[in-house]
Design a protein around this nucleic acid. Structure first.
Lengths: 159, 159
DNA sequence: TAGATCGTTTGTGTAAGACAAACCATTAAT
DNA sequence: ATTAATGGTTTGTCTTACACAAACGATCTA
């Protein structure tokens, strides 16, 4: 099963394509998000927090692939709006466990709702099924890959 | 077939997800592309030019959703490396028809080859089939949508 | 007690990119 | 023929996202 010689074309690279679509999406999102006091960057963070549950800031920095110092600023924004909470980890009180608040979850939902029109426009060429497929694929990409996933010491999750 | 009442969940928004994956991809791509004298932005432009054929700069600006003046700079970079050519349109000599050169096409191919490792890492969670599906979906998104597509006056294409 | 680690603050530098103004060459309108 | 509009170019300014470094307090570990 490892190699069916039938179709053997080299896999296409979708980096540039993804970048391109991302840009189109981001540009439009900005104006939609602005009235909510959010920027695309904030939305990514909120989404990650919702999907992966609370995590330490270090972990978050790794996930977002951002410099730690800049994550601080990002979280400061979000915390100022009560969208997230930083709690000291009981396990290691140096750590902050960052979690989405109810307000944050609601605003995130609201933002996503507001983005419907944007996505409709950008993904006009895709059917609903295709959009769902795209979503699933992207989520699969971002979901922790088993290895490398745990060991962050957040504990309370069995791995 | 238009509505099976079985699953009726609201469609997911993949903007943030896409942004996130895009970032991860871009970060790694930068270091791979640097030795080739390219930046992610350049790769997008080259990709668009290959996929859509030559276009006027205005058209290109619209496709890339970039400000015209910045497109000039981008193309200047690429032209300096002989990756693209600006030819005056015979139809309207104010226009530049921008096209990929052989050198450009080759470098693009080389870059994509070099990016294999990057995509392997980022898309580790996806099977080859899934990657291909992702590619197809993204391409479908970026491919001109029929309406709005033509009317650019590039002519030589029947629409 | 000493050293490492997490988060934070501040400050610096680079790059993307938006935007405006002025310009030339060309085309279209009158 | 004159005028106005358009495609491209140049220059210059401004904002923002980041990366990166340095220093600090609190906390954990040895």
């Amino acid at each position: 099963m490892t190699s069916l010689p039938v179709v053997n074309q080299p896999p296409h690279r979708c980096g540039a394509l993804l970048d391109h679509v991302g840009r189109r999406l981001r540009l439009r999102s900005e104006s939609v998000l602005a009235p909510l006091g959010l920027r695309p960057r904030h939305l990514i963070a909120l989404t990650v927090l919702r999907d992966q549950g609370g995590s330490s800031q270090q972990h978050l920095a790794k996930t977002l692939e951002m410099d730690g110092t800049n994550v601080v600023g990002l979280l400061n924004d979000l915390e100022a709006e009560k969208l997230i909470e930083r709690r000291r980890s009981p396990v290691d009180r140096r750590r902050h466990v960052v979690e989405l608040t109810d307000v944050g979850a609601k605003l995130l939902a609201k933002a996503e709702f507001a983005l419907a029109a944007v996505e409709d426009e950008v993904f006009r060429a895709l059917s609903d099924d295709q959009r769902e497929t795209l979503y699933t694929l992207l989520q699969q990409v971002t979901s922790r890959t088993g290895t490398e996933a745990c060991m962050e010491g957040v504990a309370s999750e069995p791995c």
